[in-house]
Design a protein around this nucleic acid. Structure first.
Length: 424
RNA sequence: GUGAGCGUAGCUCAACGGUCAGAGCACUGGACUGUGGCUCCAGGGGUUGAGGGUUCAAAUCCCUUCGCUCACCCCA
Protein backbone atom coordinates (compact mmCIF):
# COMPACT_ATOMS: atom_id res chain seq x y z
CA UNK A 1 0.00 0.00 0.00
CA UNK A 2 1.51 3.21 -1.10
CA UNK A 3 -0.18 6.56 -0.66
CA UNK A 4 -1.18 8.12 -3.94
CA UNK A 5 -0.67 11.68 -2.82
CA UNK A 6 2.10 13.55 -1.15
CA UNK A 7 2.00 16.98 0.37
CA UNK A 8 3.40 19.89 -1.59
CA UNK A 9 7.13 20.40 -1.31
CA UNK A 10 8.10 22.88 1.35
CA UNK A 11 4.64 22.86 2.89
CA UNK A 12 4.95 20.51 5.84
CA UNK A 13 2.10 19.05 7.85
CA UNK A 14 2.03 19.96 11.51
CA UNK A 15 1.12 16.70 13.20
CA UNK A 16 -0.87 16.17 16.39
CA UNK A 17 2.30 15.39 18.32
CA UNK A 18 3.71 18.87 17.72
CA UNK A 19 0.59 21.00 17.71
CA UNK A 20 0.70 21.37 21.49
CA UNK A 21 3.96 23.30 21.25
CA UNK A 22 2.50 25.58 18.58
CA UNK A 23 -0.50 26.32 20.72
CA UNK A 24 1.55 27.06 23.80
CA UNK A 25 3.84 29.44 21.92
CA UNK A 26 0.92 31.18 20.24
CA UNK A 27 -0.87 31.59 23.55
CA UNK A 28 2.22 33.06 25.21
CA UNK A 29 2.81 35.42 22.31
CA UNK A 30 -0.80 36.57 22.30
CA UNK A 31 -0.68 37.23 26.01
CA UNK A 32 2.47 39.32 25.77
CA UNK A 33 1.31 41.20 22.68
CA UNK A 34 -1.88 42.14 24.47
CA UNK A 35 0.11 43.29 27.48
CA UNK A 36 1.97 45.64 25.18
CA UNK A 37 -1.25 47.00 23.75
CA UNK A 38 -1.63 45.09 20.51
CA UNK A 39 -4.95 43.86 19.12
CA UNK A 40 -5.26 40.97 16.73
CA UNK A 41 -6.12 41.53 13.09
CA UNK A 42 -6.85 38.82 10.55
CA UNK A 43 -6.44 39.51 6.87
CA UNK A 44 -6.97 37.04 4.01
CA UNK A 45 -4.08 34.87 2.96
CA UNK A 46 -4.24 36.30 -0.54
CA UNK A 47 -4.33 39.79 -1.94
CA UNK A 48 -4.10 41.53 -5.25
CA UNK A 49 -0.63 40.97 -6.61
CA UNK A 50 -0.15 44.69 -7.06
CA UNK A 51 -0.30 45.24 -3.29
CA UNK A 52 2.86 43.24 -2.76
CA UNK A 53 4.63 44.57 -5.83
CA UNK A 54 4.10 48.13 -4.66
CA UNK A 55 4.51 47.43 -0.96
CA UNK A 56 7.55 45.19 -0.92
CA UNK A 57 9.27 46.66 -3.95
CA UNK A 58 9.62 45.65 -7.55
CA UNK A 59 13.27 44.75 -7.45
CA UNK A 60 13.16 42.57 -4.36
CA UNK A 61 13.75 38.83 -4.43
CA UNK A 62 10.33 38.21 -2.98
CA UNK A 63 8.52 40.02 -5.76
CA UNK A 64 10.87 38.94 -8.48
CA UNK A 65 10.97 35.22 -7.92
CA UNK A 66 9.27 34.04 -4.76
CA UNK A 67 5.61 34.88 -5.05
CA UNK A 68 2.82 32.37 -5.51
CA UNK A 69 0.86 34.32 -8.07
CA UNK A 70 -2.17 33.11 -10.00
CA UNK A 71 -5.06 34.42 -11.98
CA UNK A 72 -8.52 33.95 -10.59
CA UNK A 73 -11.56 33.30 -12.74
CA UNK A 74 -12.13 36.98 -13.21
CA UNK A 75 -8.61 37.20 -14.70
CA UNK A 76 -7.41 39.19 -11.75
CA UNK A 77 -3.86 38.53 -10.59
CA UNK A 78 -3.79 37.38 -6.98
CA UNK A 79 -0.89 36.38 -4.77
CA UNK A 80 -0.60 34.22 -1.66
CA UNK A 81 0.78 36.59 0.93
CA UNK A 82 4.59 36.39 1.25
CA UNK A 83 4.57 38.70 4.29
CA UNK A 84 2.13 40.40 6.60
CA UNK A 85 2.90 44.09 6.70
CA UNK A 86 1.49 45.20 3.35
CA UNK A 87 -1.87 43.45 3.90
CA UNK A 88 -2.18 44.90 7.39
CA UNK A 89 -1.51 48.43 6.21
CA UNK A 90 -3.96 47.88 3.38
CA UNK A 91 -6.64 46.74 5.79
CA UNK A 92 -5.97 49.62 8.18
CA UNK A 93 -6.35 52.15 5.40
CA UNK A 94 -9.34 50.45 3.84
CA UNK A 95 -11.24 50.40 7.13
CA UNK A 96 -10.07 53.83 8.32
CA UNK A 97 -8.40 52.41 11.40
CA UNK A 98 -5.69 55.04 11.43
CA UNK A 99 -7.94 58.07 11.25
CA UNK A 100 -7.61 58.90 14.92
CA UNK A 101 -4.04 59.70 14.12
CA UNK A 102 -2.49 58.34 17.30
CA UNK A 103 -0.53 55.20 17.88
CA UNK A 104 -2.23 52.11 16.49
CA UNK A 105 -1.00 48.62 17.32
CA UNK A 106 -2.05 45.34 15.73
CA UNK A 107 -0.66 41.83 15.53
CA UNK A 108 -1.34 38.87 13.31
CA UNK A 109 -0.43 35.22 13.03
CA UNK A 110 -0.71 32.75 10.24
CA UNK A 111 0.84 31.17 7.18
CA UNK A 112 2.97 33.02 4.63
CA UNK A 113 4.05 31.70 1.24
CA UNK A 114 7.28 32.09 -0.67
CA UNK A 115 8.48 29.95 -3.53
CA UNK A 116 12.03 29.25 -2.41
CA UNK A 117 14.08 26.10 -2.28
CA UNK A 118 13.34 24.55 1.11
CA UNK A 119 16.15 23.93 3.57
CA UNK A 120 16.70 23.85 7.31
CA UNK A 121 14.43 26.53 8.75
CA UNK A 122 13.07 27.57 5.37
CA UNK A 123 9.74 26.54 3.92
CA UNK A 124 7.39 27.52 1.16
CA UNK A 125 4.53 27.73 3.58
CA UNK A 126 5.73 29.00 6.92
CA UNK A 127 4.15 30.77 9.83
CA UNK A 128 4.72 34.14 11.33
CA UNK A 129 3.61 36.05 14.36
CA UNK A 130 3.94 39.67 13.41
CA UNK A 131 3.02 43.06 14.76
CA UNK A 132 2.77 46.59 13.46
CA UNK A 133 2.84 49.78 15.49
CA UNK A 134 1.79 52.72 13.40
CA UNK A 135 1.76 56.44 14.03
CA UNK A 136 4.76 57.23 16.21
CA UNK A 137 8.21 58.22 15.10
CA UNK A 138 9.82 58.40 18.51
CA UNK A 139 12.61 55.85 19.05
CA UNK A 140 10.91 54.94 22.32
CA UNK A 141 8.50 52.95 20.18
CA UNK A 142 11.40 51.11 18.54
CA UNK A 143 12.77 50.32 21.97
CA UNK A 144 9.41 49.09 23.15
CA UNK A 145 9.06 46.79 20.16
CA UNK A 146 12.52 45.32 20.74
CA UNK A 147 11.74 44.94 24.42
CA UNK A 148 8.60 43.03 23.55
CA UNK A 149 10.57 40.53 21.50
CA UNK A 150 13.27 40.11 24.16
CA UNK A 151 10.58 39.56 26.72
CA UNK A 152 8.86 36.94 24.59
CA UNK A 153 12.04 35.03 23.81
CA UNK A 154 13.14 35.05 27.43
CA UNK A 155 9.72 33.94 28.60
CA UNK A 156 9.71 31.07 26.17
CA UNK A 157 13.21 30.08 27.14
CA UNK A 158 15.01 30.68 23.86
CA UNK A 159 18.65 30.44 24.84
CA UNK A 160 21.48 32.24 23.14
CA UNK A 161 19.50 34.66 21.00
CA UNK A 162 21.24 37.79 19.79
CA UNK A 163 19.85 41.08 18.63
CA UNK A 164 21.48 42.67 15.60
CA UNK A 165 20.65 46.30 15.09
CA UNK A 166 21.22 48.79 12.35
CA UNK A 167 19.89 51.97 10.88
CA UNK A 168 19.59 52.04 7.13
CA UNK A 169 18.68 55.70 6.81
CA UNK A 170 15.67 57.38 5.30
CA UNK A 171 14.66 58.78 1.95
CA UNK A 172 17.01 61.69 2.46
CA UNK A 173 20.26 59.92 3.25
CA UNK A 174 19.92 56.40 1.90
CA UNK A 175 20.01 57.39 -1.78
CA UNK A 176 23.04 59.57 -1.09
CA UNK A 177 24.87 56.74 0.62
CA UNK A 178 23.86 54.28 -2.03
CA UNK A 179 25.25 56.60 -4.65
CA UNK A 180 28.57 57.07 -2.85
CA UNK A 181 28.94 53.42 -2.02
CA UNK A 182 28.15 52.29 -5.52
CA UNK A 183 30.61 54.71 -6.99
CA UNK A 184 33.33 53.49 -4.64
CA UNK A 185 32.71 49.84 -5.33
CA UNK A 186 32.27 50.37 -9.04
CA UNK A 187 35.79 51.68 -9.20
CA UNK A 188 37.16 48.46 -7.71
CA UNK A 189 34.72 45.99 -9.04
CA UNK A 190 37.37 43.56 -10.22
CA UNK A 191 37.91 42.69 -6.55
CA UNK A 192 34.32 41.57 -6.12
CA UNK A 193 33.11 38.00 -6.16
CA UNK A 194 30.93 37.02 -9.15
CA UNK A 195 27.75 37.24 -7.08
CA UNK A 196 28.57 40.76 -6.00
CA UNK A 197 29.21 41.90 -9.54
CA UNK A 198 25.60 41.01 -10.22
CA UNK A 199 24.55 42.73 -7.01
CA UNK A 200 26.35 45.84 -8.07
CA UNK A 201 23.91 46.20 -10.94
CA UNK A 202 20.78 45.07 -9.19
CA UNK A 203 21.05 45.87 -5.51
CA UNK A 204 24.45 47.29 -4.57
CA UNK A 205 23.76 47.56 -0.85
CA UNK A 206 23.62 43.77 -0.67
CA UNK A 207 27.38 43.80 -1.15
CA UNK A 208 27.58 45.06 2.42
CA UNK A 209 26.35 41.69 3.55
CA UNK A 210 28.60 39.45 1.44
CA UNK A 211 30.63 36.80 3.25
CA UNK A 212 33.45 36.57 0.71
CA UNK A 213 36.76 37.77 2.08
CA UNK A 214 37.56 39.99 -0.90
CA UNK A 215 34.24 41.76 -0.76
CA UNK A 216 34.44 42.19 2.97
CA UNK A 217 37.75 43.96 2.89
CA UNK A 218 36.54 46.15 0.07
CA UNK A 219 33.44 47.01 2.08
CA UNK A 220 35.58 47.78 5.11
CA UNK A 221 37.35 50.54 3.18
CA UNK A 222 34.22 51.84 1.53
CA UNK A 223 32.13 54.68 2.98
CA UNK A 224 30.52 53.57 6.25
CA UNK A 225 26.75 53.26 6.17
CA UNK A 226 26.24 54.55 9.69
CA UNK A 227 28.45 57.55 9.26
CA UNK A 228 26.59 58.44 6.12
CA UNK A 229 23.30 58.81 7.92
CA UNK A 230 21.67 62.20 7.89
CA UNK A 231 21.41 64.14 11.11
CA UNK A 232 17.84 63.12 11.93
CA UNK A 233 18.55 59.44 11.35
CA UNK A 234 21.69 59.60 13.45
CA UNK A 235 19.81 61.23 16.28
CA UNK A 236 17.06 58.66 16.07
CA UNK A 237 19.53 55.80 16.13
CA UNK A 238 21.57 57.18 19.01
CA UNK A 239 18.49 57.85 21.05
CA UNK A 240 17.29 54.30 20.42
CA UNK A 241 20.58 52.95 21.69
CA UNK A 242 20.33 55.06 24.82
CA UNK A 243 16.88 53.72 25.47
CA UNK A 244 18.00 50.13 24.95
CA UNK A 245 20.69 50.77 27.54
CA UNK A 246 18.05 52.12 29.87
CA UNK A 247 15.95 49.00 29.37
CA UNK A 248 19.03 46.77 29.73
CA UNK A 249 18.57 45.16 26.35
CA UNK A 250 21.67 43.56 24.87
CA UNK A 251 22.31 44.16 21.22
CA UNK A 252 25.13 44.55 18.78
CA UNK A 253 25.22 47.13 16.04
CA UNK A 254 25.78 45.50 12.70
CA UNK A 255 26.10 48.21 10.13
CA UNK A 256 26.09 45.65 7.36
CA UNK A 257 22.62 44.38 8.21
CA UNK A 258 20.52 44.88 5.09
CA UNK A 259 16.87 44.10 4.69
CA UNK A 260 15.30 42.47 1.70
CA UNK A 261 12.14 44.52 1.59
CA UNK A 262 12.22 47.99 0.13
CA UNK A 263 9.89 49.66 2.59
CA UNK A 264 12.27 49.69 5.54
CA UNK A 265 13.74 52.95 6.80
CA UNK A 266 15.97 53.77 9.73
CA UNK A 267 15.81 51.05 12.37
CA UNK A 268 16.39 47.55 11.02
CA UNK A 269 16.89 44.54 13.26
CA UNK A 270 17.17 40.81 13.36
CA UNK A 271 16.97 38.41 16.28
CA UNK A 272 19.31 35.58 15.55
CA UNK A 273 19.84 32.17 17.09
CA UNK A 274 23.40 31.18 16.18
CA UNK A 275 22.65 27.53 17.00
CA UNK A 276 20.26 27.26 14.09
CA UNK A 277 22.30 26.82 10.92
CA UNK A 278 22.16 28.91 7.79
CA UNK A 279 18.65 30.29 8.30
CA UNK A 280 19.16 31.60 11.78
CA UNK A 281 16.94 34.67 12.00
CA UNK A 282 14.06 33.91 14.34
CA UNK A 283 12.58 37.38 13.99
CA UNK A 284 13.21 40.42 11.89
CA UNK A 285 11.75 43.79 11.24
CA UNK A 286 12.22 47.48 11.24
CA UNK A 287 10.78 50.88 10.65
CA UNK A 288 8.77 51.80 7.56
CA UNK A 289 8.14 55.52 7.84
CA UNK A 290 7.07 56.00 4.22
CA UNK A 291 4.99 52.90 3.61
CA UNK A 292 1.60 54.14 4.77
CA UNK A 293 2.05 57.23 2.67
CA UNK A 294 3.13 55.20 -0.35
CA UNK A 295 0.05 53.07 -0.07
CA UNK A 296 -2.20 56.06 -0.33
CA UNK A 297 -2.65 56.82 3.34
CA UNK A 298 -1.63 59.85 5.35
CA UNK A 299 2.09 60.24 6.00
CA UNK A 300 2.50 58.09 9.10
CA UNK A 301 5.60 56.42 10.48
CA UNK A 302 5.50 52.82 11.61
CA UNK A 303 7.51 49.89 12.83
CA UNK A 304 6.90 46.18 12.73
CA UNK A 305 8.37 42.75 13.10
CA UNK A 306 7.71 39.17 12.15
CA UNK A 307 8.68 36.08 14.10
CA UNK A 308 9.27 32.86 12.21
CA UNK A 309 7.27 30.26 14.09
CA UNK A 310 9.13 27.24 12.77
CA UNK A 311 12.48 28.76 13.66
CA UNK A 312 11.26 29.88 17.03
CA UNK A 313 9.95 26.41 17.81
CA UNK A 314 13.24 24.65 17.09
CA UNK A 315 14.95 27.24 19.29
CA UNK A 316 12.89 26.20 22.28
CA UNK A 317 14.19 23.85 24.97
CA UNK A 318 12.97 20.28 24.70
CA UNK A 319 10.10 19.99 27.09
CA UNK A 320 9.63 16.51 28.41
CA UNK A 321 6.26 15.10 27.60
CA UNK A 322 4.39 15.63 30.85
CA UNK A 323 2.44 12.47 31.60
CA UNK A 324 -1.21 13.36 31.64
CA UNK A 325 -2.92 10.52 33.51
CA UNK A 326 -6.26 12.21 33.10
CA UNK A 327 -9.74 10.86 32.56
CA UNK A 328 -11.53 7.56 32.55
CA UNK A 329 -11.43 4.63 30.17
CA UNK A 330 -14.38 2.24 30.33
CA UNK A 331 -13.23 -1.30 29.59
CA UNK A 332 -16.04 -3.69 28.89
CA UNK A 333 -16.81 -7.36 28.39
CA UNK A 334 -19.98 -8.21 26.55
CA UNK A 335 -22.67 -6.29 24.75
CA UNK A 336 -24.71 -5.32 27.78
CA UNK A 337 -21.73 -3.89 29.60
CA UNK A 338 -20.69 -2.11 26.47
CA UNK A 339 -24.05 -0.32 26.23
CA UNK A 340 -23.90 0.69 29.84
CA UNK A 341 -20.38 1.99 29.31
CA UNK A 342 -21.54 4.06 26.38
CA UNK A 343 -24.04 5.81 28.66
CA UNK A 344 -21.51 6.29 31.41
CA UNK A 345 -18.96 7.73 29.02
CA UNK A 346 -21.58 10.08 27.61
CA UNK A 347 -22.40 11.26 31.13
CA UNK A 348 -18.74 11.80 31.98
CA UNK A 349 -18.06 13.75 28.81
CA UNK A 350 -21.02 16.01 29.51
CA UNK A 351 -19.50 16.76 32.87
CA UNK A 352 -16.29 17.73 31.19
CA UNK A 353 -14.34 14.59 32.01
CA UNK A 354 -12.05 13.06 29.42
CA UNK A 355 -13.57 9.66 28.81
CA UNK A 356 -13.47 6.91 26.23
CA UNK A 357 -14.26 3.27 25.60
CA UNK A 358 -13.41 0.50 23.19
CA UNK A 359 -15.29 0.53 19.92
CA UNK A 360 -13.25 -2.15 18.21
CA UNK A 361 -14.23 -5.29 20.13
CA UNK A 362 -10.83 -5.61 21.79
CA UNK A 363 -10.03 -8.09 24.50
CA UNK A 364 -10.01 -6.82 28.07
CA UNK A 365 -6.22 -6.99 28.18
CA UNK A 366 -6.01 -5.06 25.00
CA UNK A 367 -8.41 -2.43 26.33
CA UNK A 368 -6.27 -2.07 29.42
CA UNK A 369 -3.20 -1.64 27.29
CA UNK A 370 -4.97 1.02 25.31
CA UNK A 371 -6.06 2.84 28.45
CA UNK A 372 -2.48 2.78 29.65
CA UNK A 373 -1.03 3.89 26.34
CA UNK A 374 -3.40 6.81 26.14
CA UNK A 375 -2.69 7.79 29.70
CA UNK A 376 -6.11 7.49 31.30
CA UNK A 377 -5.99 7.93 35.06
CA UNK A 378 -8.77 5.43 35.75
CA UNK A 379 -10.09 2.34 34.09
CA UNK A 380 -13.66 1.39 34.82
CA UNK A 381 -14.12 -2.34 34.30
CA UNK A 382 -17.61 -3.52 33.40
CA UNK A 383 -18.45 -7.19 32.81
CA UNK A 384 -21.04 -9.79 33.72
CA UNK A 385 -20.02 -9.83 37.36
CA UNK A 386 -20.35 -6.08 37.73
CA UNK A 387 -23.74 -6.10 36.07
CA UNK A 388 -24.88 -8.89 38.39
CA UNK A 389 -23.64 -7.35 41.64
CA UNK A 390 -24.29 -3.75 40.63
CA UNK A 391 -20.72 -2.89 41.61
CA UNK A 392 -18.24 -1.66 39.02
CA UNK A 393 -14.50 -2.13 39.33
CA UNK A 394 -12.51 1.07 39.24
CA UNK A 395 -8.78 0.81 38.76
CA UNK A 396 -6.38 3.64 39.41
CA UNK A 397 -3.88 3.25 36.59
CA UNK A 398 -1.23 5.36 38.19
CA UNK A 399 -1.30 3.71 41.61
CA UNK A 400 -2.33 0.26 40.51
CA UNK A 401 -5.02 -0.35 43.14
CA UNK A 402 -8.69 -0.88 42.48
CA UNK A 403 -12.01 -0.70 44.30
CA UNK A 404 -15.68 -1.55 43.81
CA UNK A 405 -18.18 1.25 43.43
CA UNK A 406 -21.95 1.08 42.99
CA UNK A 407 -22.99 1.37 39.37
CA UNK A 408 -25.52 4.14 39.93
CA UNK A 409 -22.92 6.37 41.56
CA UNK A 410 -20.30 5.81 38.93
CA UNK A 411 -20.59 9.09 37.05
CA UNK A 412 -20.73 11.31 40.11
CA UNK A 413 -17.90 9.47 41.82
CA UNK A 414 -15.70 9.72 38.77
CA UNK A 415 -16.41 13.37 38.22
CA UNK A 416 -15.26 14.26 41.72
CA UNK A 417 -12.43 11.72 41.72
CA UNK A 418 -11.22 13.06 38.43
CA UNK A 419 -11.12 16.64 39.64
CA UNK A 420 -9.15 15.47 42.68
CA UNK A 421 -6.87 13.46 40.40
CA UNK A 422 -6.11 16.52 38.37
CA UNK A 423 -5.24 18.52 41.45
CA UNK A 424 -2.68 15.95 42.62
C1' G B 1 17.40 29.16 -9.85
C1' U B 2 22.67 26.61 -8.72
C1' G B 3 25.55 22.80 -6.10
C1' A B 4 26.37 18.53 -2.90
C1' G B 5 24.69 14.31 -0.02
C1' C B 6 21.00 10.63 0.83
C1' G B 7 16.51 7.25 -0.57
C1' U B 8 16.04 -0.50 2.50
C1' A B 9 9.56 -2.49 7.27
C1' G B 10 5.29 2.60 10.47
C1' C B 11 10.26 4.76 12.90
C1' U B 12 15.87 4.39 13.57
C1' C B 13 19.26 1.73 10.92
C1' A B 14 22.20 -3.18 9.17
C1' A B 15 23.38 -6.47 4.83
C1' C B 16 32.41 -7.85 1.05
C1' G B 17 28.35 -7.64 -6.41
C1' G B 18 26.64 -14.01 -4.36
C1' U B 19 21.27 -18.63 -0.06
C1' C B 20 14.74 -16.74 1.11
C1' A B 21 17.01 -8.51 2.49
C1' G B 22 17.84 -8.51 8.63
C1' A B 23 17.84 -6.11 13.81
C1' G B 24 15.94 -2.74 17.53
C1' C B 25 11.66 0.12 18.55
C1' A B 26 6.44 0.20 17.38
C1' C B 27 2.09 -2.95 16.28
C1' U B 28 -0.99 -7.72 17.11
C1' G B 29 -1.53 -12.16 19.90
C1' G B 30 0.01 -15.54 23.79
C1' A B 31 2.36 -16.97 28.68
C1' C B 32 -1.93 -14.51 32.59
C1' U B 33 -9.65 -18.96 31.14
C1' G B 34 -11.64 -10.91 33.43
C1' U B 35 -6.66 -6.59 34.54
C1' G B 36 -2.16 -1.99 31.79
C1' G B 37 3.26 -1.08 32.79
C1' C B 38 8.14 -5.28 33.54
C1' U B 39 9.80 -9.98 31.40
C1' C B 40 9.66 -14.03 27.92
C1' C B 41 7.63 -16.32 23.37
C1' A B 42 5.26 -16.00 18.70
C1' G B 43 3.19 -13.34 14.54
C1' G B 44 2.00 -9.72 10.75
C1' G B 45 4.34 -6.39 7.95
C1' G B 46 9.24 -4.84 2.03
C1' U B 47 7.87 -4.12 -5.79
C1' U B 48 15.18 -2.06 -1.32
C1' G B 49 11.65 5.54 -4.24
C1' A B 50 10.55 4.68 -9.74
C1' G B 51 12.38 3.36 -14.72
C1' G B 52 16.25 1.54 -17.66
C1' G B 53 21.31 -0.58 -18.22
C1' U B 54 25.96 -3.64 -16.96
C1' U B 55 26.43 -8.80 -15.01
C1' C B 56 25.72 -15.84 -14.64
C1' A B 57 24.00 -12.82 -10.34
C1' A B 58 22.27 -5.85 -8.30
C1' A B 59 19.71 -3.07 -2.14
C1' U B 60 25.00 -2.83 -3.66
C1' C B 61 27.92 -0.66 -10.01
C1' C B 62 26.22 2.96 -14.24
C1' C B 63 22.42 6.29 -16.47
C1' U B 64 17.67 8.77 -16.14
C1' U B 65 13.80 10.48 -13.15
C1' C B 66 11.19 11.64 -8.72
C1' G B 67 11.58 12.68 -3.63
C1' C B 68 14.10 14.18 0.81
C1' U B 69 18.13 16.78 3.21
C1' C B 70 21.88 20.44 3.56
C1' A B 71 24.33 24.60 1.49
C1' C B 72 24.53 28.97 -2.02
C1' C B 73 21.08 32.82 -2.78
C1' C B 74 17.61 35.19 0.25
C1' C B 75 15.07 35.62 4.63
C1' A B 76 11.16 34.49 9.05
Amino acid sequence: MKPIFKGVRGAPDILPGEVGRWQRVEAEARRILQDYGYQEIRTPIFERTELFVRGIGEGTDIVEKQMYTFEDRGKESLTLRPEGTAPVIRACLEHHLLTRGGLYKVYYTGPMFRHERPQAGRFRQFHQIGAEAIGVEDPALDAEVLDLLCHLFDTLGVSGWKLHLNSIGDEACRPVFREQFTRYVQAKKEKLCPDCRVRLERNPLRILDCKEEGCRSLVAQAPSPLESLCKDCKTHFHRLQELLGLLKIDYSVNEHLVRGLDYYTRTAFEFVNPALGAQNAIAGGGRYDRLVDEMGGPPMPGIGFAIGMERLLISLPQEEQGEMWIGVFAATLGKEASQLALQIVQGLRRQGVRASLDLEGRSLKSQMRLAHKERYRYTLILGDEELKTGLATLKDMAKGDQEQIPLREVVNRLVSQESRGRAE
